[in-house]
């Protein structure tokens, strides 16, 4: 780890100014400190955000929520409005990491965490995300966790977040501020596909700071579920995960939100499947054909081909469970 200066601003303006002057934002530290120590990331100056007033969760007039970027994962998971109105957000949070890490990790940091691809984390192997142009070791290497959707020949990494999967399903907006002011980014536009620039995870400009995540109201999200599949029963990153909210009326899908984790460089909103389901019977067969339509574009490699049937099974299971729940 190279030496760095440390700053602890107390206002957003101060933080943005420090970052503009060569600073790197530090929130919970669970990803950044890890990466600094591995030597896969360097910083001249850390701008500690933990003293900024960004740790509030407020309710909007329309029933939506404004989640400060400094809200810790455990506080977000336990918030009464989150766990009752958006249970899959709580489920995603408590499916991630461990109790200790959830007490540290923040909402903003969760959005910006970087891939767990083993080659990205190993500075002795080529990785286009870590060192553009060096090559991708994962395409023909240890590939069980590789992306099946939206990958490029330069990068097959997946986004590791659990929280981001339900947020992708919810038409969330991300409020950011930078040297040139404040702006709002639709959640689906925050994370990038790798293309030929896998070094860029997001569309944030240098120095931009996430202030908040705004979750619009979605009445039927009270009936939502997050299911994560992993190689340990707990404390492991997802092989794949599914976040879904389902509105069924008289056996017909009135509306649905569906997003997938562990399959792409970004949290994957399954819009093709959603479209295929609206107005259709809420049956396992329909769920299956909808997700198969979504997975039509899947291009798995040798070691991650199992993710295709795994995603299909898990989506069918989650949607079927939500249907049965609404019938009850």
């Amino acid at each position: 780890m190279k030496p760095f200066a440390y700053e602890r601003p107390t206002t957003v303006e101060e933080a943005v100014a420090l970052a503009a002057d060569g600073g790197t934002y530090l929130a919970g530290g669970t990803n950044l400190v890890d990466h600094l120590r591995l030597g896969i990331r360097e910083a001249d100056r850390l701008v500690d955000l933990t003293r900024l007033p960004l740790d509030e969760i407020t309710e909007r007039a329309d029933g939506g929520l404004v989640i400060g970027s400094g809200v810790r994962n455990s506080d977000l998971a336990a918030h009464p409005l989150v766990r009752t109105r958006f249970p899959f957000v709580t489920q995603a949070l408590v499916a991630g990491a461990s109790g200790q890490l959830r007490n540290m990790a923040t909402t903003g940091g969760n959005l910006l965490q970087r891939t767990r691809c083993v080659y990205f984390q190993d500075p002795t192997t080529p990785c286009n995300k870590r060192e553009p142009g060096s090559g991708c070791s994962a395409v023909e290497g240890f590939g069980r966790y590789n992306a099946i959707l939206g990958a490029s020949e330069d990068c097959v990494a997946t986004h590791p977040s659990d929280l981001c999967v339900p947020l992708a399903a919810l038409d969330t907006e991300v409020v950011v501020v930078g040297p040139s002011g404040e702006r709002r980014i639709a959640f689906g536009d925050l994370h990038r596909l790798p293309g030929d620039r896998p070094d860029l995870d997001t569309t944030l400009d240098p120095g931009e700071l996430v202030l908040a995540v705004e979750v619009p109201p979605l009445d039927f999200a009270v009936r939502s579920r997050y299911r994560k599949v992993r190689e340990r029963a707990s404390y492991a990153f997802a092989l794949v995960s599914v976040a879904a909210a389902l509105d069924v009326h008289d056996g017909t899908v009135r509306d649905v939100r569906l997003a997938l984790g562990g399959v792409s460089h970004r949290p994957h909103r399954a819009r093709i499947a959603e479209e295929a389901l609206r107005g259709r019977p809420a049956t396992p067969d329909q769920f299956r054909s909808a997700i198969e339509a979504e997975l039509g574009a899947a291009s798995p490699g040798e070691h991650n081909a199992f993710k295709v049937p795994l995603v299909r099974n898990t989506v069918v299971d989650v949607l079927t469970g939500l249907t049965e729940g609404s019938a009850a």
């Binding site: 069980r144 190689e231 798995p300 081909a305």
Partner: peptide, 15 residues
């Protein structure tokens, strides 16, 4: 691990 089960179930895996 889960991939082994899917392999055994003969799902359409690449290998």
């Amino acid at each position: 691990t889960p991939d082994r089960l899917f392999d055994a179930w003969g799902q359409p895996t690449a290998s």
